[in-house]
Design a protein around this nucleic acid. Structure first.
Lengths: 248, 248
DNA sequence: CAAATATGTGCGATAATCGCACAAACAGTC
DNA sequence: GACTGTTTGTGCGATTATCGCACATATTTG
């Protein structure tokens, strides 16, 4: 049954394009064909279209995204005034904090870093940059986003998500995670340690929706750092003030 | 004549998607139809596909990109290790410079900012952020990119480009611009003042190709600042050292 | 309120798409 | 160098998706 309001070929093309989200450097057309389940010939045609349009570049059979995709991402950032309005605030508070601060938003069943600022000596958490995605359940970012979605969105997200183990300390009990999300909603911040990355902890505070999506500010540091109450309070304070700046 | 290696419906969809590069906040499906030249029904179907896939969000008839597009951009950044390798270097030298430093690459007939770091008090040049695009001819970034493309790429680019006036001081003479590009190639940096933005000047140095595309490091400041030889030399020095760090 | 603009939809002709099978090229191993 | 496995490229025709038109509805503007 064809959905008349949908262009299935375009949808397939987007599916191919999304194979490159992971940043893999070894994708061949054959591998894309396996990832998508599309016939090789179909995959090839869609990849060729992306190449002809300048979105993909091929060298030695390996396909890579080209910078052109950033122009669309730039359109997103521009339309929400991230450069002018958000980045300077993040820069300011990252400097004050002497660490990193990131703004993340929800995209379906995951979180996406939308903007980020870090001083040069800040820990590089997984090499995350703009566009990196995070799971919702084991991260402060994710839980804070869920805490601030509507109840319906939250229920939908939670029922569709299965906890996945990232570290020995990842909370795998849905009820427990739900409870932590409620706590985050009540106290106005989320704090997660050792559940997504051993030795790392994250704090997130809400800044209300941007466009149609919930958004939060977050910072990460080593568990050692945030286990010191003064450091924790300082980080939370910085995040909250930055959030206030962004809401004005 | 159908091009058998190309999926024309997918290409159309990408054409629709690229309408959102500009960051416009008032795009309706009717406007997208005008911009692309596609029939309204076609446009609608392509837009609906983007919405269904989570790339576009519609409110009050206005279409906006959703954060999901950033995930693909993130794939590009990850595959080139920008987060781990490039961003910390930019942060370090932006701090030392007490200004902004950006890495830009060439995408066909334009330049794209791929990474950027700025201290909080840095001037915000046009609110540029990752993904912002710049013209090649009237900018230091563009000229340095052209200077470091192959001669064939350079000739192709120059013959396909018509100088466009951005300020009263924009160089509109192709021969003159070509000569400036050659100068940039010889001296290893490009310097442009008042040609793209009145009162603003830019310096760019090359860092060799990333992937398949030429890349440069650039900084911008007010004309007042860069007209002081000491400030100019300092900026150039910082850029060159940063470039060396990135080439290691 | 009328006019202009934007959106939504059914329908059938046509163009695009699909996948299969064959061929060629390349990479890795012995 | 030979062999095997993998990847890429391509012609072809049956099938499906796409297209645009015309009509209807809804919203915005002057």
């Amino acid at each position: 049954m064809t959905n008349k309001n949908n262009a299935s070929t375009f949808a397939k093309g987007l599916r191919v394009l999304s194979c490159f989200e992971t940043g893999r450097r070894d994708l061949t057309m054959a591998e894309v064909s396996r990832l998508t389940g599309f016939d090789r010939a179909t995959t090839r045609r869609l990849c060729m279209t992306l190449q002809d349009d300048g979105y993909l570049h091929k060298a030695d059979r390996v396909l890579r995204l080209a910078p052109k995709i950033l122009a669309i991402a730039g359109g997103y950032l521009t339309s929400n005034d991230f450069g002018h309005r958000v980045q300077p605030v993040l820069n300011q508070y990252a400097e004050e904090f002497e660490g990193e601060i990131a703004l993340a938003m929800q995209d379906g069943d995951r979180a996406i870093y939308v903007a980020r600022s870090a001083i040069s000596s800040a820990r590089v958490s997984f090499g995350f940059s703009v566009g990196s995605t995070l799971p919702l359940l084991p991260t402060a970012v994710g839980r804070m986003l869920l805490a601030h979605g509507s109840d319906a969105d939250q229920a939908t997200a939670l029922s569709g998500l299965t906890p996945e183990r990232y570290t020995p300390e990842t909370d795998m009990d849905v009820g427990s995670v739900r409870s932590k999300i409620e706590t985050a909603a009540k106290q106005g911040y989320a704090f997660v340690r050792n559940e997504f990355e051993m030795g790392a902890a994250g704090i997130a505070v809400p800044i209300g929706p941007i466009g149609a999506s919930p958004a939060v500010l977050a910072t990460t540091a080593s568990v050692n750092q945030f286990d010191k109450p003064a450091e924790f309070d300082r980080a939370l304070d910085v995040l909250r003030r930055a959030a206030i700046s962004l809401r004005a």
